[in-house]
Every structure is written in C-alpha cells, then in structure tokens.
Amino acid sequence: MDKIKSLADLKKIRDNVQSKIELREKSENPEKSVQIKVAMATCGIAAGSKETMTYFIENLERNGIPAIVTQTGCMGYCFAEPTVEITKPGEEPVVFGHVTPHKAEEIIQKYLKNGELVEGIIPVNYNSI
C-alpha cells in the first residue's frame, strides 16, 4: 500500500473507492436517480430478463446516468417479457415491453439521454397501492 502523501493522493483514492458505496448512497435517496425495475419472475427470466438487467447496469454506468436497477416480481405482462419499468426523477413510471439488450440500448440513448419516446411502451391504466 502506497502511503497517502497529499490531498491529491487522498482524492485519487476517494475517486477509486467511491463506486464501492455509490450504490448505497443512491439507494438512500432513490427519488434523485433514474429507477429501473426489471421483472424477474419465471416468465421474465425465461425471456432473458437477466441479460437485460446486466446490460442496464453495465451500460448506464458507462453512459454516466445515475440509476438504481432493481428486480421485481411479475408485473403481469407475460406476453411482453422482458418488461422493465422506468421512473425518471420527478416523472411518472413508464413500462416498456420486449426489452432485449438491443432495446435497452435504444432506451438508454433515446429515452434516458434525450427524453425521446421509444416504441414498445405498455399503457398502464390501473392504480396500484
């Protein structure tokens, strides 16, 4: 272990280790990040939701979008798996169907980065408690 000899050294270590606890810090204030819930029930997993989730985690980080990616149970749209619910800070949640890694990339680039809508939104017209 190299000793910390200056403020710059300390900052360097901090930048390196920040990512270790970033997940925890973001989760304490979820409303400040993009929240992505991937449906991971049997139907979702069978349709490849695990890959979708991993794709989101790795590529959101790469694109510098602060986000919390979690899994949830079946959302009921088994015809459109993998399904993903996305909530941007201060906005209503939007559910996307058939989200393959390819679709995930489109969502990241268009919906999350530029605010454009993409096809495949499942209308949600019920209230949940």
Binding site: S6, L7, L10, I13, Q18
Partner: peptide
C-alpha cells in the same frame, strides 16, 4: 478504511492540515 474515505473520510483532516 476505503469505505470511510469514500464517505469524505479524512478530507476534513486534509483540509485542516493543508
């Protein structure tokens, strides 16, 4: 210690000393 450093640990000491 790295988790403490990630939470701004030892920056106050650095600030005081420097």
């Amino acid at each position: 210690i790295e988790e403490y450093i990630a939470r701004e640990g030892y920056t106050a000491l650095a600030k005081c000393l420097t």
